[in-house]
Design a protein around this nucleic acid. Sequence first.
DNA 1: TTCGATGATTCGGC
DNA 2: GCCGAATCATCGAA
Length: 352
Amino acid sequence: MRRRRQQCLTSALPLNLSCPPLTLSPCYPISRCWPEESPAHWGGSDDPAEGGGAGGGTAGGGLPLNFQHRKHALNCHRMKPALFSVLCEIKEKTVLSIRGIQDEDPPDPQIMRLDNMLLAEGVSGPEKGGGSAAAAAAAAAAGGSPGADGGIEHSDYRAKLAQIRQIYHSELEKYEQACSEFTNHVMNLLREQSRTRPISPKEIERMVAIIHRKFSSIQMQLKQSTCEAVMILRSRFLDARRKRRNFNKQATEVLNEYFYSHLSNPYPSEEAKEELAKKCAITVSQVSNWFGNKRIRYKKNIGKFQEEANLYAVKTAVDAASVSAQASQANSPATPTSGGYPAPCYTPDGRL
DNA sequence: TTCGATGATTCGGC
DNA sequence: GCCGAATCATCGAA
């Protein structure tokens, strides 16, 4: 097309058959893109039989002699190098102005936000427990109980997050592959076309940048939908955590045992709390909450807790006796009954 | 649906 | 920061 325009422009020039030797302008920067740095590509071959390349494909076979003659004359015209230079300059300026507008491509803040979020959630970036970290953070934020059920929920959350991550990477790979294939295709096309029209490396770069920009917008959609999926998953996870769950029977038993066996001073140390938390598969703060509630409720209504207290006191005594017998150490039971909270009265068979 | 039980939260005191 | 006290919110049995 460009060649045709050039031909039209040059055809208006006065012809001089006694043309000087044709030389290309040394400052032409885009000539590297032309497979053969020959004026033949600009105005066709000097050989009238060849017909002047793609633009004049039929010229060799069926173009009027007049046309071939004029074409030959044009190729040999003394003004051709000058005109070529001018056209190249015009083109160079156009490319620069376009580049000036389009190269200013600051990083999209939305993409950056999405990238940061996906990285924080462990979806993008290296997979090193990002999901579990997010789950732990979510659990901490909810102040929830990572107990037996919590463990199931936790692994469930991680599994779902891993699924999202897998889909995300799979789709991303597809997009990148498609982008690469399409870029290669376009570049090959442009290289092919550069045989018939001047195409500078900058132009190819610009075209590649446009393609990448288009694919980048598709990637942004993928990132957006992934972020939404993670948010929904996280929200569900947090909602589930917010729901209060009663401790299991075994955990309550362990806590009660400790409480009633330390009735004189039902304030477990930090170490004891950690130990209890480990035994009950709950957090230390949950142990603290439990003891706080227990102390108050016991004090408020000792009568109501008498039976329970007796039960655990007997159990503790039996356990202690058993341990003593086993260890051949006949020490007294570990049930303190003086000071602190009022201890229950019980008979050896466990009744009040 | 009701209501007691229970885990969590909030607030003030130390 | 821990504790007691009050309160909230949910669970679960009747």
